[in-house]
Amino acid sequence: MSSLAPPVRIPHLDVTGRVAFHRILLSEWTKLRSVRSTKWSLVVGFLLTIAFPVIFSLVTRSHWHSMSARERSGRHPLDIALAGVNVAQLAIAVLGVLLVSAEYSTGSIRSTFTAAPKRLPVLWAKVLDYAVVSLVLIVPAVLVSFFASQAILHTIHPLHISFTQSGVARSVLGGALYVMLVGTFALAIGAIVRNTAGGIAAFAAIFFVLPPLMFVLPQSWNNAISQYLPSEAGRQVFALHHAAHTLRPLTGGLLFAGYCALALAIAAVLLVRRDV
């Protein structure tokens, strides 16, 4: 109007693409890899998953000669090899919550849903990307853990265990599967709660507070209920021996996957219905 400067011209775009699931998958992958804190958390989670079994193996080997027979019988090589899973699950869970909650706290969710207004594919893409990333990281981590700890422990006869032994491969890989499902569950919680602190608190309550609370109940109730908790059901995937009042690995794994599916279903319904 008043200005004599020529109007700004924006360059034209010669392609017109439609929103498609494989594109949202790529977009979510870009988001996942492009936040520095996410990358570092994954790297630290990966290293700790290996570091703990290695340290525990070294400590166990150096103390073996001074252990009582009773104490020795309580050691199991697979418990040592998979000690890192307990650490990894926390790292993967916190990141899972953050992947969604950080979008709300920063407001980037508005950009996300402007580009993909159908919303649901965004949730599925986040879950799929994250599941693949956590498996790609944790499968090698548990394998390295197993063979590293065995390299240290194999000289001690009762602590020697072979990967081909019945149930061992399933337990080791099950540990990775468990961590992947924990990440999925946490991501769904993040999408339901939409707040980082609240999401992490909710996850911690379900995984770390609820199980010990069960011990307040009468023994028979605890025995009956505990095995169906998400964390307890999930852990059977990487338990080598079947203990009393626990589910079989397959049953436990399926139940835990069911909990994940339920959490995702709730997240999906809320995602479509709620204002952003």
Binding site: V15, G17, V19, R23, L26, S27, T30, S34, A115
Partner: peptide, 9 residues
Amino acid sequence: LALAQTHGI
């Protein structure tokens, strides 16, 4: 880039 990728831009 992440936004562009949703549309194959």
